[in-house]
């Protein structure tokens, strides 16, 4: 149902939301020794979803460990600048997807109301 109305945007929103959680986990673990930062390769996840995987499966197959620019002595690979930009980029993507969905809803409700 939601698939036919919203097209790819429903899955995209769910993936964006999962990615947001993952990046927030990285930010939360900025001071944890030995923590390895992870991120979802959004394009790969969306491709996997279009290939038939459900969103959870697509997100987990597209999850990658972050390669640090400069490894730190305690084994933590969280770099604040990287995480912040990734978080911001993801938030903008989430907003964009949300406006696509909103546009779709507006179109449908206008068609139903008939004005």
């Amino acid at each position: 149902m939601s698939e036919s109305i919203f097209g790819i945007h429903a899955a995209a929103l769910e993936l964006r939301s999962q990615r947001m959680g993952l990046i927030a986990s990285n930010i939360a673990n900025a001071g944890t020794p030995g923590y390895k930062a992870r991120d979802i390769d959004f394009a790969a996840a969306l491709k996997a979803h279009m290939g038939g995987a459900n969103t959870d499966g697509a997100a987990s197959t597209a999850t990658r460990y972050r390669v640090p620019v400069m490894p730190s002595l305690d084994g933590n690979t969280v770099e604040m600048a990287t995480e912040q930009t990734a978080f911001a980029e993801n938030a903008v993507g989430y907003s964009a997807t949300l406006s696509f969905i909103r546009g779709r809803i507006d179109t449908l409700s206008r068609a139903m109301k008939g004005d």
């Binding site: 990046i23 001071g31 949300l98 809803i105």
Partner: peptide, 27 residues
């Protein structure tokens, strides 16, 4: 360092909360 990491978390939380609220308010 602790204050900076705390601040970062607050900022991320604020953005996430904002997006969640926007999603909920969609009519």
């Amino acid at each position: 360092e602790s204050a900076r990491q705390y601040q970062n978390m607050v900022e991320a939380l604020q953005t996430a909360k904002q997006l969640m609220l926007e999603t909920m308010r969609m009519k």
